[in-house]
C-alpha cells in the first residue's frame, strides 16, 4: 500500500487548514469592529419581542440607539419597570417609575348593542369594512370587530368576542401596535390605574347616538354634575375622564343612564 499519497493529501489539506486559520485569526484582530460592551447588556435587558413599540426597527436597533444615547431609555414598554431599571443601571442614568399603561377599548358596541347599517360581505378586515359607506355599524366610531388589531398583537392579548375586541390586561404590554392599526381609533393607551373609563367615542348628536347604539354617550352631563373632583367633562358630545383627577369614587358610573361608563375591579 502506498502511504505516500495519503500523507501528501493529509499534509496538503492540513497545511491549507493551518494557513486559513492563520489568515482568519489575523483578520479577526486586524479588522475587528469595536462593539460597545453595553450593547450586549442592553440587548439582553430589553423585552426582545421585536414589537416596534419603541419606534425602532427592532430590539437590536433600539439597543444600538440607546447605547449611542440617541434614544430614551424608557421606550421599551413591554419590558416595563424591570427593563427601565436595568437600562438605567447600564447607561448610568436615573431610573424613573414607569407608568404602567394598557390598551383599552373605548366602545361597547357588541352585536346587538350597536345597530347594523348593512350586512357586510366584503374582505374580512376592519380597514376595508370602514371604507365602505362608513362601516357596517350605524355608529361611525364603533369597533367593527373584524380583528385588524388582533392580527398585529404579538402578545396574544386580544381576541374578538361577540363582535367586539376584548383585551387581556395581564398580557397587554402597551406596545401600542393595535392603537396604530385601528382604523376607528377605538383603542387607546391609558394608565392601568385609571379603572374608570368612558367606553364610548360617539361624537354624533345625542339623538343620532342613541339611535345608533344602546350604550352610547348621549352627552347628558349627569356624570359631570355627579363628579365632585372636576374629573369628567363632556366635549364634542362625548364624556372624557382626566385620569390625573379621577379618584375612582364611581359616582359617574352610578348616574350614567346609558351605562357607557365602566369601572373595572
Amino acid at each position: 500500500m502506498d502511504y505516500a499519497a495519503i500523507l501528501k493529501a493529509v499534509a496538503a489539506l492540513g497545511g491549507l487548514g493551518i494557513l486559513f486559520g492563520l489568515v482568519l485569526s489575523f483578520a479577526d484582530k486586524k479588522f475587528a469592529v469595536p462593539v460597545d460592551e453595553r450593547f450586549t447588556l442592553v440587548r439582553e435587558a430589553v423585552a426582545g419581542a421585536n414589537c416596534g413599540a419603541c419606534g425602532y426597527a427592532g430590539c437590536d436597533a433600539y439597543a444600538q440607539a440607546v447605547v449611542k444615547g440617541e434614544a430614551d431609555i424608557s421606550l421599551c414598554t413591554p419590558g416595563g419597570q424591570a427593563t427601565l431599571d436595568a437600562l438605567a443601571a447600564i447607561m448610568q442614568k436615573e431610573s424613573a417609575v414607569a407608568e404602567v399603561q394598557v390598551a383599552r377599548v373605548l366602545c361597547q358596541g357588541e352585536t346587538g348593542v350597536v345597530k347594523p347599517r348593512y350586512d357586510y360581505k366584503g374582505p374580512k378586515t376592519c380597514h376595508m369594512a370602514v371604507s365602505l359607506s362608513g362601516g357596517p355599524n350605524l355608529c361611525n366610531w364603533s369597533c367593527v370587530g373584524l380583528g385588524d388589531c388582533v392580527r398585529v398583537c404579538r402578545f396574544d392579548a386580544m381576541r374578538i368576542e361577540n363582535g367586539i375586541v376584548v383585551i387581556d390586561e395581564n398580557k397587554c404590554t402597551a406596545c401600542g401596535m393595535c392603537v396604530l392599526e385601528c382604523p376607528r381609533s377605538v383603542l387607546r393607551l391609558l394608565p392601568k390605574a385609571a379603572r374608570v373609563t368612558v367606553r364610548c367615542r360617539n361624537e354624533a348628536r345625542p339623538k343620532e347616538a342613541r339611535e345608533a347604539c344602546s350604550k352610547a354617550c348621549i352627552a347628558c352631563k349627569l356624570c359631570e354634575k355627579a363628579c365632585a373632583y372636576d374629573a369628567i367633562h363632556v366635549n364634542n358630545n362625548v364624556a372624557r375622564i382626566d385620569p390625573a383627577k379621577c379618584t375612582l369614587c364611581g359616582e359617574c358610573v352610578k348616574v350614567c343612564p346609558m351605562k357607557c361608563i365602566e369601572q373595572l375591579p
Binding site: R117, V130, S131, L132, S133, G134, G135, N140
Partner: peptide, 8 residues
C-alpha cells in the same frame, strides 16, 4: 348624509 364614503 352617510353615502358610500368613509365619512358623511
Amino acid at each position: 348624509k352617510q353615502l358610500l364614503g368613509k365619512n358623511p
